[in-house]
Simulated assay, not measured.
Amino acid sequence: MQTSVHEIAEGVYRLSTCVPDAVPGGFTFNQYLVDADEPMLFHLGPRRLFPLVAEAVGRVMPVERLRWLSFGHVESDECGAMNAWLEAAPGAEVVFNELGCMVSVDDLADRPPQHMIDDGTYQLGGHHMRALLTPHVPHGWEAQVLFDETTRTLLCGDLFTQVGDGPALVHDADLVTPAMAAEEMFGATALTGSTAPTLRRLADLEPRTLALMHGPAFAGDGAAALRGLADAYEARMAQGVAA
């Protein structure tokens, strides 16, 4: 396995590792490095991928420059390597929402994490980051996404998950069809009455780039893609209720 590096927006790098035997056709695990005065890594990866991802970060900047470490929810592929990053970057801190810290990260992290608040903005120096809490969307009580207001990039975690190892960046592609195919395979989304409204709230940000954790990054009308995903999940939930 190798970890590839591609700049998907100005100063935002997709670090992608395809694990070929995870599912038929392979499955990508992506991290996103925001190269700012105070650099941030979003998604920390599982522990076994840490050496590959750390080497990939090193192609952009020294690992020890990392200042902030964050992720979408508490799961091994999101934060399994958290303490390895804390050891490799002595000045780094984990930053995550208060609920997630209370129920998990305060205990799991080797250094105390900083707490994010819903709709709070954070200055990285060259990039302005906004945190948005998305409980149970797509899953996890403590789920969140981050929005880089400077480049209008939504670090959208497990939203739009798809299988396979495609290009690093696609332009105005259909993200909904492969996402629903993956949903049929995994059944990973927690469908509730708040699923579609939460996605439409994210669409109102009008992102230009969607940074998927599992799949290619997307450039184009991110709002339309998010509203399409909201419609698809709303229809799926209605079918389940009717059944």
Rank of each mutant, 00 (worst) to 15 (best):
V94S: 08
P135G: 07
A179M: 09
A182Q: 02
S16C: 14
W85K: 08
A217I: 10
A223V: 06
L146A: 10
V19E: 11
T189Y: 09
L175D: 02
R200Q: 08
R227D: 02
L169Q: 05
A22D: 05
Q162N: 09
V34R: 02
G26V: 07
L154H: 11
R200Y: 02
P90G: 15
F29S: 13
D110M: 14
E184T: 13
V176Y: 06
H6A: 14
P197S: 06
C79G: 02
D107R: 15
E87L: 13
T17D: 00
T195H: 05
L86E: 08
F29A: 14
M82H: 01
G166N: 06
D107I: 09
L202P: 02
H127I: 12
D77Q: 06
R227N: 11
A168Q: 14
E149T: 05
A235V: 07
G45P: 01
V5M: 08
R227G: 01
A232D: 02
T134F: 03
G11V: 05
E184K: 11
P216N: 05
S16H: 07
G220C: 03
A109S: 15
L108M: 15
D174A: 13
A89C: 07
Q239W: 12
I8R: 01
A36V: 04
W141P: 00
L154F: 08
A242Y: 03
L133W: 09
T189P: 00
A36E: 00
P112G: 07
A143D: 06
F218S: 07
L41A: 03
T153R: 13
G72N: 10
P207G: 11
V12K: 09
T192S: 15
A196D: 00
L226G: 05
R67C: 03
A217V: 14
A242T: 04
E38H: 12
V105Y: 03
V74S: 01
Y13F: 15
A223H: 06
N83A: 10
T151P: 00
D119N: 11
Q2T: 14
E75L: 14
V163A: 11
L108N: 02
M185P: 02
R48A: 14
S4R: 15
G26L: 09
T198V: 08
L124I: 12
W141D: 09
A9L: 04
P178L: 08
R14V: 11
V163L: 14
A217N: 12
G193D: 15
G140V: 09
I117W: 07
D110S: 15
L226M: 10
